[in-house]
Amino acid sequence: MDKLIAGVNVSVNEEGYLTDSSQWTKEIAAAIAAEEGVELTDKHYELIEFVRNKVANGETLTIRGIGKSGVVNAKEFYGLFPGAPLKKATKISGVPKPTSCI
């Protein structure tokens, strides 16, 4: 289905995850973040870039992996995206919801 985010029509799934990662822009990220109650800082964008690169390379995202990313440690990651960090971070990054259990 389509959804109007930040003035652009993008295709999303029923949970609001972008189904086409190439439609992602920083403005869309900020709009989704606002819906999730997160205000994006430079650190967020740095992490979003890391997440998008990881997914583009076909790698599995885990909190452990992000904690070792060199961008943030696990605790800081929870601080940036309070509640459910991996779900929120992927949604804001315009990549699919992670399927990892860890």
Binding site: I63, R64, N73, K75, F77, I102
Partner: peptide, 14 residues
């Protein structure tokens, strides 16, 4: 990518 026990505990408390 399942961490050893000590690191797993750190992740949980983080």
């Amino acid at each position: 990518d399942i961490p050893p026990v000590d690191e797993f505990l750190e992740l949980i408390t983080a």
